[in-house]
């Protein structure tokens, strides 16, 4: 599955990476933290989405659609 990163998360990850399939956001989050320990705090503050839908930790992931990781907003 494809995972896309934005803003400060790109300090730790390439903008787009391929990950093994995960059933839920919680499982993917744990895998990302294991891959980049230094990003753990920022990952814990981030939201996950597919398309225009925000996902909850127990939300199932649609494997065919990229999942995006959104750090805290800083617009305005």
């Amino acid at each position: 599955m494809q995972v896309l990163f934005f803003a400060g998360l790109k300090k730790y990850f390439q903008p787009a990476i391929e990950m093994p399939a995960h059933d839920t956001v919680a499982s993917l989050l744990a895998a990302l933290k294991a891959q980049q320990h230094e990003a753990s705090e920022l990952l814990d503050q981030s939201r996950f989405a597919q398309g225009d839908q925000i996902l909850m930790l127990d939300s199932p992931i649609q494997a065919h659609e990229p999942i995006v990781v959104l750090p805290p907003s800083s617009g305005g």
């Binding site: 934005f6 400060g8 939201r47 959104l70 750090p71 907003s73 800083s74 617009g75 305005g76």
Partner: peptide, 12 residues
Amino acid sequence: IYRIKHEVPIWK
């Protein structure tokens, strides 16, 4: 403007 700054996925 408060909600835009904190909830909308925009980063500066």
